[in-house]
Design a protein around this nucleic acid. Structure first.
Lengths: 157, 157
DNA sequence: CAGCGTAAGTTCCAAAATAGAACCTTGTCA
DNA sequence: TGACAAGGTTCTATTTTGGAACTTACGCTG
C-alpha cells in the first residue's frame, strides 16, 4: 500500500492518517491549540524546517483543518487558525496526552495538567459510550459493517 | 528538533509520538485490535514491507506496547499481542475513528460502526471530564503546569 | 531422503522524504 | 540608505521507505 492510496481505503483510521499521519502535523496542531498562529512562531517553537512547515500548513489548509487568514494588508501577512474540523481534533489530542501521561511520564508525573473550567477541577479525559455514558472497554465493543461499506442500493430504472 | 530528542521533551504528545508517531505503527495497532497477531498476517493485511514491519514490531515490543509470545516451539514461531499499555491505546484509536467518521467519511457514512455490548446500542465515543462527567469542549479547558514540569524540591542535606 | 511448503525474518538497491542552511520578496522604519 | 521583519522558496546531504529477493529452521510428502 502506498500513501496515495491510504485515503482511498474504507477505514477512518487510514483516512485520518492520510491527513495527520506524520509527527510534524500533530505537533503543529498541538501548538495551534496552545494559541500559536504565525509561521515564524510555529517554526521557532517546533524547530521544524521552514520548508516542511510551509508544506504541512498548506496541506492542512487545503484539507480544511486550518485556515489562512490575513491579519494585515500591507505588507500582506497571514496567520493560521484551526477550523471547526481542526478544533474537533482536540479529542484525539486529549486521548494522546492521557496515554502519554499514563504510560510515559514516569515518576515525575504529567508535564501538563488540565482544569475543566465548567466544574473547576483537574481532570482526566474519559471516553464513554454516547448511549449509556459508561466508560468504554475494548473488550465490550463489537465493530459491525457500517453504511460506508455496505454495497449501495440499486437505483430504480 | 530531531526525532531522537522527541521523547526527551516534557510533553506527553511528543513522547507518545516518539513511539506511535508514524503511520505504519498506528495501522499495526489498528489491526492488532482486529485480532491480527502473526508477522505474515500483518504483512499481508497492511501491505507493509517485511523489513519495516520487523522494525516496527521490534520497537513496539521493546517499548512495552506489544509482547512477543512463542505459540509453538519446534520450529519456533511467535505472535505479537497487545500488552495492557497497547490495549490502553484504544481510546486514541476510537477518537481517531470518530474524527475520520465525522469529517472524512462523506455521504456514504462510516465504514465501520461500533456496538457497546454492555448497553446493546450503536454508539459514538464521547470524551468527558472525569470529575463532572460533562462532555469536554476545547474552550473550557485550561492547561496548567504539572508535577512533571515543576522544578524538583531541593533535597535536605 | 530430495524437494516443497511455511513462518519469520534479513539483505540489497533505488526512490522518496527530511534536515539544515542560505536565499528571496515585499514592505516598514530610523 | 540600510537594517529589520514575516513568510516563504531553493539547494544539497542524509535518512527513511518501498520493493523484491534471499535465509533459516523445521515439517510433510512421495
Amino acid at each position: 500500500m502506498k500513501w496515495r492510496e491510504l485515503d482511498g481505503t474504507a477505514c477512518s483510521v487510514a483516512r485520518s492518517l492520510a491527513i495527520v499521519g506524520d509527527r510534524w502535523t500533530i505537533l503543529i496542531l498541538r501548538n495551534a491549540f496552545l494559541r500559536t498562529r504565525r509561521f515564524d512562531d510555529f517554526q521557532a517553537e517546533l524547530g521544524i524546517t521552514r520548508h516542511l512547515l510551509a508544506g504541512r500548513l498548506a496541506k492542512l489548509v487545503k484539507l480544511g483543518v486550518m485556515s489562512k487568514v490575513a491579519y494585515q494588508e500591507r505588507p500582506p501577512r497571514y496567520e493560521y487558525r484551526l477550523t471547526e474540523m481542526g478544533r474537533d481534533w482536540y479529542s484525539v489530542q486529549l486521548a494522546l496526552v492521557a496515554w502519554g501521561d499514563k504510560w510515559l511520564a514516569g515518576e515525575a508525573g504529567a508535564p501538563l495538567e488540565f482544569v475543566h473550567q465548567k466544574c473547576g477541577h483537574k481532570f482526566q479525559p474519559v471516553t464513554v459510550c454516547s448511549e449509556c455514558r459508561e466508560p468504554l472497554d475494548v473488550r465490550e465493543i463489537s465493530p459491525i459493517i457500517g453504511p460506508g461499506l455496505r454495497p449501495p442500493k440499486r437505483l430504480p430504472g
